[in-house]
Simulated scan of single mutants.
Amino acid sequence: MNVLIIYAHPEPKSLNGSLKDFTVRHLERAGHTVQLSDLYAMNWKASLDANDSSERHNGERFFPSLESKHAFENGLQSEDIAREQDKLTWADAVILQFPLWWFSMPAIMKGWVERVYAYGLAYGVGEHSDARWGERYGEGRFAGKRAMLVVTTGGWESHYSARGINGPIDDVLFPIQHGVLYYPGFDVLPPFVVYRASRVDEAKYAELSDALGRRLDALWTTPPIAFRPQNGGAYAIPALTLRDDLAPGRVGFAAHVDDEGVETATEADEATEA
């Protein structure tokens, strides 16, 4: 299989750097083909702006989505964007690896998403009608591909528990897993999360690498998070609100996961250790 790793950490000798190197070695030894986009090493340009196209659609005003659409459809994107899009098209699975900084991905990775996810590639596709509202949330250009987050945090696991001060880790990661990944069609696997990253010693690292190796071995067999598909009947169109009979009384992120198929990050990790 073809695996693309999008990696964001400025220090090669960090825990993230070591886990990234382990992932590449482990996948290649298992016979997979790996491409790595090391964003800091690439000096990736994070800001989406008018320089991302060699020819403006509208010279008077920069409208990001329309400029993105024009550039993507006409082969006018900057070379760095086109290269990353080719990698996405090539990949069977994508791994986003990053430290959790201020409850999200580092800015350089967010910039990768904003620039590479062009209109016509990751969004703005499919019909919009009373029956469908575009190909997204379970459909889209990346349907059939798998994706997983590998995330490190400084906080304790209890800080990200159901009643933890930082909020449940599945809620913290929801905008990335449901928005950045499920929106354009990826099957999103439960994340691999490392807590108290600064406290990882040699013994703990051995445990982590063993657990990560098992998750990588199961990259094509692990059930994805059971997000509800947008066009499958669960949502009223065009309002895109969940039907009243589904998850009654529940609001927020949890309502958009099918209770019958939900698997938390902790449960997935426990399953790999069984």
Rank of each mutant, 00 (worst) to 15 (best):
residue 239 A to I: 09
residue 200 V to Y: 14
residue 108 I to R: 05
residue 146 R to G: 13
residue 83 R to L: 14
residue 251 V to F: 12
residue 178 H to Q: 09
residue 21 D to G: 06
residue 8 A to N: 04
residue 164 G to F: 10
residue 201 D to S: 10
residue 85 Q to K: 02
residue 250 R to Y: 00
residue 35 Q to G: 00
residue 29 R to H: 08
residue 174 F to L: 01
residue 49 D to C: 03
residue 107 A to C: 02
residue 98 F to N: 09
residue 88 L to H: 13
residue 166 N to Q: 13
residue 137 Y to Q: 06
residue 42 M to S: 08
residue 217 D to H: 09
residue 83 R to N: 09
residue 67 E to M: 05
residue 213 G to R: 09
residue 88 L to R: 12
residue 258 D to T: 12
residue 120 G to I: 08
residue 205 Y to P: 00
residue 160 Y to W: 08
residue 69 K to Y: 04
residue 45 K to I: 11
residue 127 E to I: 00
residue 120 G to C: 02
residue 232 G to P: 05
residue 133 W to D: 09
residue 7 Y to W: 11
residue 256 H to S: 07
residue 12 P to C: 01
residue 67 E to P: 00
residue 103 F to R: 04
residue 240 L to C: 07
residue 167 G to D: 05
residue 15 L to P: 12
residue 139 E to V: 04
residue 251 V to C: 03
residue 214 R to Y: 01
residue 11 E to R: 15
residue 3 V to L: 09
residue 210 D to Y: 14
residue 143 A to C: 10
residue 97 Q to W: 08
residue 210 D to W: 14
residue 39 L to S: 03
residue 116 V to Y: 14
residue 74 N to T: 05
residue 164 G to C: 08
residue 115 R to F: 13
residue 232 G to F: 06
residue 72 F to C: 00
residue 85 Q to I: 07
residue 33 T to M: 11
residue 214 R to V: 03
residue 211 A to N: 12
residue 202 E to I: 01
residue 157 E to P: 01
residue 201 D to Y: 11
residue 17 G to V: 07
residue 66 L to W: 04
residue 83 R to I: 06
residue 41 A to W: 08
residue 222 T to Q: 15
residue 131 A to W: 09
residue 200 V to H: 10
residue 82 A to C: 01
residue 43 N to L: 02
residue 145 K to G: 03
residue 175 P to R: 02
residue 256 H to K: 06
residue 3 V to Q: 06
residue 154 G to H: 11
residue 11 E to M: 02
residue 62 F to M: 09
residue 112 W to I: 02
residue 17 G to I: 11
residue 160 Y to G: 12
residue 239 A to W: 08
residue 27 L to F: 14
residue 121 L to K: 14
residue 60 E to W: 00
residue 154 G to T: 11
residue 25 R to C: 01
residue 40 Y to V: 03
residue 261 G to A: 07
residue 196 R to S: 15
residue 25 R to N: 11
residue 42 M to R: 15
residue 99 P to H: 05
residue 60 E to Q: 10
residue 17 G to L: 10
residue 224 P to K: 08
residue 248 P to H: 13
residue 204 K to G: 06
residue 226 A to C: 07
residue 24 V to G: 09
residue 196 R to E: 15
